[in-house]
Amino acid sequence: MTTPTAGEPAAATSDERAADPNSGPRRVLIALYAIFALAAISRAAVQISTKFDEAPLAYSLSLFSGLVYLAAATGLILRGPVARGIAWAACSIELLGVLVIGILSIFDSNAFPHDTVWSRFGSGYVFIPVILPVLGLWFLFHTRADRAPTEPAVGR
Protein backbone atom coordinates (compact mmCIF):
# COMPACT_ATOMS: atom_id res chain seq x y z
CA MET A 1 0.00 0.00 0.00
CA THR A 2 2.73 2.47 -0.85
CA THR A 3 1.97 5.65 -2.69
CA PRO A 4 4.63 6.26 -5.32
CA THR A 5 3.85 9.94 -5.73
CA ALA A 6 1.85 11.49 -2.97
CA GLY A 7 1.86 14.96 -4.51
CA GLU A 8 3.64 18.14 -3.76
CA PRO A 9 3.23 20.01 -0.44
CA ALA A 10 -0.06 21.89 -0.23
CA ALA A 11 -1.24 19.68 -3.09
CA ALA A 12 -4.43 20.30 -5.00
CA THR A 13 -7.22 18.43 -3.27
CA SER A 14 -8.54 17.08 -6.57
CA ASP A 15 -5.40 14.99 -6.97
CA GLU A 16 -5.47 13.80 -3.40
CA ARG A 17 -7.81 10.87 -3.93
CA ALA A 18 -5.63 9.33 -6.61
CA ALA A 19 -2.55 9.97 -4.53
CA ASP A 20 -3.79 8.40 -1.32
CA PRO A 21 -5.66 5.10 -1.52
CA ASN A 22 -6.22 5.24 2.23
CA SER A 23 -7.97 8.59 2.27
CA GLY A 24 -11.40 6.94 2.61
CA PRO A 25 -10.80 5.06 5.88
CA ARG A 26 -8.83 8.05 7.13
CA ARG A 27 -11.76 10.38 6.54
CA VAL A 28 -14.25 8.03 8.18
CA LEU A 29 -11.93 7.91 11.21
CA ILE A 30 -11.73 11.72 11.15
CA ALA A 31 -15.55 11.83 11.26
CA LEU A 32 -15.65 9.39 14.19
CA TYR A 33 -12.93 11.16 16.16
CA ALA A 34 -14.32 14.64 15.48
CA ILE A 35 -17.79 13.61 16.68
CA PHE A 36 -16.39 11.96 19.81
CA ALA A 37 -14.21 14.98 20.53
CA LEU A 38 -17.33 17.13 20.27
CA ALA A 39 -19.34 14.76 22.47
CA ALA A 40 -16.73 14.36 25.20
CA ILE A 41 -15.60 18.00 25.34
CA SER A 42 -19.19 19.30 25.37
CA ARG A 43 -20.11 16.84 28.08
CA ALA A 44 -17.09 17.83 30.14
CA ALA A 45 -17.78 21.53 29.65
CA VAL A 46 -21.34 21.11 30.93
CA GLN A 47 -20.26 18.89 33.84
CA ILE A 48 -17.37 21.11 34.93
CA SER A 49 -19.33 24.34 34.62
CA THR A 50 -22.45 23.13 36.43
CA LYS A 51 -21.48 20.46 38.98
CA PHE A 52 -17.71 20.01 39.12
CA ASP A 53 -17.68 19.40 42.89
CA GLU A 54 -19.87 16.31 42.61
CA ALA A 55 -17.24 14.21 40.86
CA PRO A 56 -14.08 16.17 40.03
CA LEU A 57 -12.14 13.07 38.98
CA ALA A 58 -14.77 11.79 36.55
CA TYR A 59 -15.41 15.20 35.06
CA SER A 60 -11.71 15.95 34.64
CA LEU A 61 -11.43 12.59 32.93
CA SER A 62 -14.29 13.54 30.58
CA LEU A 63 -12.31 16.59 29.54
CA PHE A 64 -9.11 14.58 29.18
CA SER A 65 -10.80 11.98 26.97
CA GLY A 66 -12.23 14.75 24.82
CA LEU A 67 -8.79 16.30 24.35
CA VAL A 68 -7.38 12.89 23.41
CA TYR A 69 -10.09 12.49 20.75
CA LEU A 70 -9.31 15.98 19.49
CA ALA A 71 -5.60 15.14 19.30
CA ALA A 72 -6.35 11.95 17.37
CA ALA A 73 -8.61 13.80 14.93
CA THR A 74 -5.95 16.47 14.44
CA GLY A 75 -3.26 13.85 13.93
CA LEU A 76 -5.38 12.22 11.22
CA ILE A 77 -6.31 15.49 9.48
CA LEU A 78 -2.78 16.87 9.34
CA ARG A 79 -0.29 14.57 7.70
CA GLY A 80 3.38 14.00 8.05
CA PRO A 81 5.56 12.29 10.66
CA VAL A 82 4.69 14.63 13.54
CA ALA A 83 0.95 14.30 12.95
CA ARG A 84 1.33 10.53 12.70
CA GLY A 85 3.16 10.53 16.01
CA ILE A 86 0.36 12.52 17.61
CA ALA A 87 -2.22 10.10 16.18
CA TRP A 88 -0.26 7.07 17.43
CA ALA A 89 0.07 8.56 20.90
CA ALA A 90 -3.57 9.65 21.08
CA CYS A 91 -4.94 6.29 19.94
CA SER A 92 -2.65 4.42 22.36
CA ILE A 93 -3.61 6.64 25.31
CA GLU A 94 -7.25 6.27 24.29
CA LEU A 95 -7.08 2.47 24.24
CA LEU A 96 -5.29 2.40 27.58
CA GLY A 97 -7.77 4.89 29.03
CA VAL A 98 -10.91 3.11 27.89
CA LEU A 99 -9.60 -0.24 29.19
CA VAL A 100 -8.43 1.09 32.57
CA ILE A 101 -11.50 3.26 33.15
CA GLY A 102 -13.74 0.51 31.82
CA ILE A 103 -12.39 -1.95 34.36
CA LEU A 104 -12.33 0.60 37.22
CA SER A 105 -15.90 1.71 36.52
CA ILE A 106 -17.10 -1.88 36.88
CA PHE A 107 -15.07 -2.89 39.93
CA ASP A 108 -14.89 0.46 41.71
CA SER A 109 -18.04 2.29 40.72
CA ASN A 110 -17.58 4.71 43.64
CA ALA A 111 -14.60 6.31 41.91
CA PHE A 112 -16.68 6.95 38.81
CA PRO A 113 -20.24 7.44 40.01
CA HIS A 114 -21.01 9.67 37.06
CA ASP A 115 -20.62 8.44 33.55
CA THR A 116 -17.73 9.44 31.40
CA VAL A 117 -17.30 8.52 27.76
CA TRP A 118 -15.03 5.67 28.83
CA SER A 119 -17.13 4.28 31.72
CA ARG A 120 -18.07 0.60 31.29
CA PHE A 121 -16.01 0.49 28.08
CA GLY A 122 -18.21 3.18 26.54
CA SER A 123 -21.50 1.32 26.94
CA GLY A 124 -23.36 4.65 26.85
CA TYR A 125 -21.97 5.18 23.35
CA VAL A 126 -22.75 1.69 21.96
CA PHE A 127 -19.17 0.63 22.83
CA ILE A 128 -17.72 2.76 20.03
CA PRO A 129 -15.14 4.18 22.53
CA VAL A 130 -13.54 0.75 22.94
CA ILE A 131 -13.68 -0.09 19.22
CA LEU A 132 -12.46 3.28 17.95
CA PRO A 133 -8.86 3.15 19.28
CA VAL A 134 -8.48 -0.35 17.83
CA LEU A 135 -9.60 0.92 14.43
CA GLY A 136 -7.32 3.94 14.75
CA LEU A 137 -4.27 1.87 15.70
CA TRP A 138 -5.06 -0.67 12.98
CA PHE A 139 -5.27 2.10 10.41
CA LEU A 140 -1.99 3.65 11.55
CA PHE A 141 -0.28 0.25 11.50
CA HIS A 142 -1.73 -0.60 8.11
CA THR A 143 -0.62 2.69 6.54
CA ARG A 144 2.81 2.91 8.20
CA ALA A 145 4.56 2.31 4.84
CA ASP A 146 2.94 5.45 3.47
CA ARG A 147 5.07 7.55 5.74
CA ALA A 148 7.09 8.93 2.88
CA PRO A 149 8.93 12.27 2.69
CA THR A 150 6.89 13.17 -0.40
CA GLU A 151 3.66 13.05 1.58
CA PRO A 152 1.65 16.27 1.55
CA ALA A 153 2.20 18.31 4.67
CA VAL A 154 -1.45 19.19 5.02
CA GLY A 155 -4.48 17.44 3.67
CA ARG A 156 -7.95 16.34 4.42
Partner: peptide, 15 residues
Protein backbone atom coordinates in the same frame (compact mmCIF):
# COMPACT_ATOMS: atom_id res chain seq x y z
CA UNK B 1 -17.87 16.00 -1.03
CA UNK B 2 -14.10 15.59 -0.81
CA UNK B 3 -14.20 11.79 -0.51
CA UNK B 4 -15.90 10.69 -3.73
CA UNK B 5 -15.89 7.00 -2.83
CA UNK B 6 -18.03 4.65 -0.74
CA UNK B 7 -16.11 5.90 2.29
CA UNK B 8 -17.71 9.31 1.87
CA UNK B 9 -21.08 7.54 2.03
CA UNK B 10 -20.04 5.84 5.28
CA UNK B 11 -18.93 9.16 6.80
CA UNK B 12 -22.25 10.87 5.99
CA UNK B 13 -24.17 7.76 7.10
CA UNK B 14 -22.45 7.91 10.50
CA UNK B 15 -23.07 11.62 10.99
Amino acid sequence: RIERTRWGSIALCFT
